[in-house]
Design a binder for these strands. Structure first.
Lengths: 151, 151
DNA sequence: CTCGTATGGTTTTAACTTGAAACCATATCG
DNA sequence: CGATATGGTTTCAAGTTAAAACCATACGAG
């Protein structure tokens, strides 16, 4: 056998990130980091996952430059885990996933956590893929172009 | 022990989908489905994953209503796998992930697959989370609101 | 000072998942 | 008829996940 297959050699921007976040917990840790959680115990309490798993995930997120381990804000000996610029770059991914999840994994009347604009308290606008000029684009309006391929 | 932890009971729209797509292959199968692949062998050749793993992933994607197994387009006895409406709803997620991946997992000069507008041949506009009124929103401009929480 | 508790992990162990390769059935082609 | 292609399933070893136990340091109470 071998290890879990790596996608680092793929030339596709969808594939490479999956080594870092293609599992059942990483995106939730990142979501919680966006919500301001920083400490090991905070993540563990929020997510309810085993401590060894959390430690492993934090390690690979740090290894991938998504989180950064920094000296604890309270002066303790341990570390806090905070998002790097790369990690903050995942915000649109989380918003997109959240909107899709709310659309398709909750019954219409089922309550769920909402992400709202801090000022107005309203939900975000739906993310919409658009052409360079702002035209809305459906999947059929797009194609993948491989390196070296001319128009 | 138990099985892989399920997130179906979470009230968060980010969490629930991870049972379906929180692994290293599902999003790539879906990406390929957006690119028009339909057959078992096409996916296997494109992704290079073991056939048993592909079969298992296709099964869970069908179980989650993301793919649908339909009679083969060529009249053969086997099945084709095509995106459902729910599956097509993942388009913004894939676009967001792709943009993030291209930004952070490729060197500046490194070639990669591009997703372009079919008409103009240009890359898509960057996805930008926005308030209800269209104002761009950074992570800090947002908060999560739990069910039952009043403004 | 010392005991009890909280925090932040690491280690151990068992079950589950992944991956490679072999196997099978049906269909096609020469 | 035999060789090859397609679409899987089965087998089995190795890797990963989860739970629980364990450990070390830090406080606070007594």
């Amino acid at each position: 056998m071998v290890k879990r297959t790596s996608h680092q050699d793929s030339l596709c921007g969808v594939a490479r990130p999956l080594d870092a976040i293609g599992d059942g917990w990483s995106l939730l840790i990142i979501r919680d980091a966006f919500d301001g959680l920083r400490r090991f115990g905070e993540f563990q309490k929020s997510l309810g996952l085993a401590k060894n798993i959390l430690a492993a995930r934090l390690r690979t997120l740090v290894d991938h430059g998504i989180l950064q381990a920094v000296p604890a804000a309270d002066g303790g000996r341990h570390q806090d885990y905070v998002l790097t610029a790369k990690g903050r770059g995942l915000f649109p991914v989380l918003v997109a996933l959240r909107q899709w999840g709310e659309d398709h994994f909750f019954r219409a009347d089922e309550p769920h956590v909402r992400l709202v604009d801090k000022r107005a308290g309203l939900p975000l606008r739906r993310l919409e893929p658009q052409a360079h000029d702002g035209t809305p684009l459906a999947p059929e309006d797009t194609v993948v172009r491989f390196p070296g391929e001319n128009p």
